[in-house]
Design a protein around this nucleic acid. Structure first.
Lengths: 230, 230
DNA sequence: AAATGTGAAGACCTTCACAGCA
DNA sequence: TGCTGTGAAGGTCTTCACATTT
C-alpha cells in the first residue's frame, strides 16, 4: 500500500517548512541568525549547540530541537558549520529578500521610525509614509513625501509594500490596521498601545514600552530578592 | 479537625503575592489594567470575564485564572466591579508609585525616548540622562542635562532611580547593563540589539523591532494562507 | 439565571538522555 | 570521543467543566 518514497518525500525540507512549527520557535530564529553572524565575525567557522547556547542563554537541547524542525544542519561529533547554518536560517526566514515597508503616522514616533538607521541594513526599506492629517501630507521626512491615507491601497500595490508599521495614536490604531490589512498586507509592526484584531492570515507584533515597564514594576518590591525568611 | 480560619489565612492576599505567579500572568496584568480603564471611561461599572475577554482577544477562563492568583475580585452571578478591580491590579503592579528612570545613551534613539510623552502620564519619569561621549555631556535634552557615565552610581542613589533604559549601540550594551545593575537597579528596558546577561534578581525587557520584523517574514510566503492543496 | 473560582484535563513547550554517526 | 538529532519524559500554561454563590 505504502509507496517507496513516501517516508523521505514526506520528510524533506520543503515539507518541513510547511509543517506546523511552533511560533515560539520561529521567534527564536532571528536571534540565532544574529548570534551566528557575530560568531562568524569573531572568526569561528564551526559552533556547537553548547557554545551557541552559552552565547544566547539557552539550553543546547532547545537549540538542537528548534533547528530540527527545519532540517539536519549539523554534523555529529563536530557541530554546525556557521556559514552554512546562517544561510539556511536566512533562507527559512526569507531574510535574503528586500522588504518594502509603509509607515502610517508621521508624528514624533513615526518620524523616529522613518529615520531609524537599523532597518535598511537588514533589508527592511521604509519606502512610503502616510498620515491622515492634511497638514502633514506633502511634507518631506527622511526623503519621503508624506501621502494622504486614501493613496494607501494604490501605493501598496504599485510599490510592492509587504509590511506596515503603525505609529498613530491609540484611538486611530484599529481603523488604520483595518485599512492596512484590507490592502492585502499580512505583517504589521504596531507601536500603538492597543492589540488590534486582525484576520488569521495577518501577523502583528506589538511594541509597547509602557506595558514592558508596567510588568517589571511588579517585581520591584523593596529589599526582597526572592527569598522569604519563613 | 479543620480550624475555622486556616483556609482563609493560608489563602489571603499577602500570601498569594508571595506565591510563585507565572511570569506570563504578570505580563498580562498591564493589559487588563489598560482595558479596564477604557471600559470605565466608556461608562461601565461592571464587567464579566466574557466581555473583558472579547476586548482583549483572550478566553474568559484565562482571565479568571490569572486574577485568581492574586485574590477573589469578582462576584458570582454578577462579574467584576471595574473600579475595584483596576485599583487592585494597580496595587499589585505598584502602578500607584512614581518610578524614576535613567536613560543611558542620548543618540537618536535615546533622545526620542527622553522626549516620548507616553511614559510620564503612567508614572514613569525620566529624570536623568547619561552618555559616555564627552561631546554629548553637558547638553540639554528635554530639560535634562546629559551626565557622564561616572556620575551614574551617585545619581542613581541620590535621585532614587529604580529603572534604567539602555539606548546605546550593541557593542556597548553589555558593559552599560553591567554598570547599571551594579548600582542596584533591578529593572532594565533594553533597546540595544543584544540579550544581556544579568543577575537573577534583575528583570530585563528587550525592545527590538528588527527581531520582530525578522520573525514575521517567515510567514510572508507568497499566496499561501496556510492551506495546502494535498 | 448568571458568572466566578478552581481542580482536573489537555495542549504545548522544554529538557532529558541516548542511539547513531563523524 | 564528541556532538547531533530525536523519541520520551517532564514541566508549564491554557482550557474545560462544574460546584458554588449571588
Amino acid at each position: 500500500m505504502r509507496r517507496v518514497y513516501s517516508s523521505d518525500f514526506l520528510c524533506n525540507e520543503v515539507t518541513k517548512l510547511l509543517m506546523d512549527v511552533p511560533e515560539v520557535v520561529v521567534n527564536r530564529l532571528p536571534q540565532y541568525v544574529r548570534a551566528l553572524r557575530q560568531i562568524l565575525e569573531d572568526g569561528s567557522e564551526i559552533v556547537s549547540s553548547q557554545l551557541l547556547g552559552q552565547t544566547l542563554q539557552m539550553t543546547p537541547a532547545q537549540i538542537r530541537k528548534d533547528l530540527s524542525y527545519f532540517g539536519r544542519f549539523g554534523k555529529q561529533g563536530r557541530g554546525y558549520n556557521v556559514r552554512y547554518l546562517v544561510t539556511e536560517l536566512q533562507d527559512i526566514l526569507q531574510l535574503d529578500h528586500e522588504w518594502n515597508i509603509a509607515v502610517v503616522g508621521v508624528g514624533r514616533l513615526g518620524r523616529a521610525i522613518i529615520s531609524y538607521p537599523g532597518f535598511s541594513p537588514e533589508g527592511f526599506k521604509v519606502i512610503a509614509a502616510f498620515d491622515s492629517d492634511s497638514r502633514q501630507v506633502g511634507q518631506s521626512i527622511g526623503g519621503l513625501i508624506v501621502q494622504p491615507m486614501d493613496e494607501l491601497a494604490d501605493t501598496v500595490r504599485q510599490k510592492g509594500i509587504q509590511i506596515g508599521i503603525v505609529a498613530v495614536p491609540a484611538a486611530q490604531a484599529s481603523d488604520v490596521v483595518e485599512r492596512i490589512t484590507s490592502c492585502g498586507i499580512r505583517a504589521i509592526l504596531n507601536y500603538a498601545p492597543v492589540n488590534p484584531l486582525v484576520p488569521p492570515e495577518v501577523k502583528v507584533r506589538n511594541i509597547d514600552p509602557v506595558l514592558s515597564l508596567q510588568s517589571m514594576t511588579y517585581y520591584l518590591r523593596s529589599g526582597d530578592t526572592g527569598s522569604t525568611s519563613n
